[in-house]
């Protein structure tokens, strides 16, 4: 077998096959693209329609990082508020989490011992 493969539990994973497939797909995509119309007009036709208002500058329209997943964070607002409470940034809390987790493992371990 020329292609090496990584055997997993359910089958195998061979990145080289994927790379070959990607090359084939790229060639097909290029052929389709090359078959496109040559008389496509640029200029007025290519401009975005903004209800007749002039398009703002590209700099002003760049979606900033904190707005990118606005909908997602808004939908999970409850989760994120509790997460922010957890990541309080206070050193006492950091130590508290550590001591708490250690104590919890202790309790669970010795309770299991007794039962």
């Amino acid at each position: 077998m020329i292609l090496m493969m990584l055997k997993t539990i359910g089958g195998f994973w061979d990145p080289l096959i994927l790379v070959l497939a990607a090359i084939v797909v790229a060639i097909i995509a290029y052929i389709i693209r090359a078959a496109g119309r040559r008389n496509h007009k640029t200029g007025e036709q290519a401009k975005p329609f903004f209800s007749g208002v002039a398009e703002p500058s590209k700099e002003a329209m760049h979606v900033r990082a904190s707005n990118l997943y606005w909908g997602f964070t808004e939908a999970l607002k409850g989760y994120y508020t509790s997460m922010k409470k957890m990541h309080s940034g206070m050193l006492n809390d950091y130590i508290g989490w550590f001591v708490g987790i250690a104590a919890l493992i202790f309790v669970v371990l010795f309770v299991m011992e007794v039962l």
């Binding site: 950091y94 989490w97 550590f98 250690a102 493992i105 202790f106 371990l109």
Partner: peptide
């Protein structure tokens, strides 16, 4: 067993396992 819990939680802390990971992003 006591030593195991202490070693385990201390190394898990240093490895950055949640919920003891807060020092890691800082």
């Amino acid at each position: 067993k006591i030593a195991l819990v202490l070693l385990f939680s201390a190394f898990a802390l240093k490895a950055g396992a949640a919920p003891m990971h807060m020092w890691l992003p800082d």
